[in-house]
Amino acid sequence: MTLTKADLIQQVYKNHNTLTKAQAIESVEAFLRISKESLIDGSDLLLSGFGKFHVKQKNARRGRNPQTGDELTLDARRVVTFKPSGILRDKINGTS
């Protein structure tokens, strides 16, 4: 099952009785906005007990088109990687 932004908003709304639906939406949107800005700026995003999002620079490299076999150059780019915390990893694997 995929957890969507709408599902996340619903869970925040349901678990915080003092928030209105609009406040729950704004809370989730604010968190996502701050997270995106941090990653766009090249900063890591560390969420204790959850994991770390890291922006990594990848250099240009040679590649090939799998359909035609033609060689091409893949441009340099930045990618986001995620490393789960030990706590999350243990819970996923059922060892905690």
Rank of each mutant, 00 (worst) to 15 (best):
H54I: 11
A76M: 03
L46Y: 14
A22M: 01
K58G: 00
D41H: 14
D41T: 15
S27G: 08
A30S: 07
R89Y: 01
S96H: 11
Q67N: 15
R64Q: 14
Q57K: 15
S48Q: 13
H16Y: 03
G86I: 03
Q10G: 03
L88S: 07
I92C: 13
V28H: 00
S85I: 10
N65P: 07
Q23D: 09
A24H: 01
G69I: 13
T81N: 11
S27V: 11
V79M: 04
A60W: 05
L19I: 07
I87P: 01
V55H: 08
A22N: 09
T73A: 12
L19S: 00
I87D: 12
K14M: 10
Q57Y: 07
S43Y: 15
T4S: 13
A76K: 07
G69D: 06
R61N: 15
V79Y: 05
K56A: 13
V28Y: 00
R61V: 08
N15W: 01
V80S: 02
R33V: 03
D7G: 03
T20K: 07
P66L: 13
F82Q: 06
T18Q: 11
K14N: 10
T68Q: 13
R77K: 15
V79E: 02
D75L: 04
A76S: 14
A6M: 10
S38D: 01
K83V: 06
R78L: 02
T4V: 09
T68V: 03
K91V: 04
E37A: 11
R89S: 06
T95M: 06
E26R: 04
V12S: 03
T20D: 01
P66E: 14
R78H: 14
T4I: 08
E26D: 03
L74R: 09
K5Q: 08
F53N: 01
L39P: 00
L8S: 04
L74H: 06
T73E: 13
A22I: 07
K58F: 02
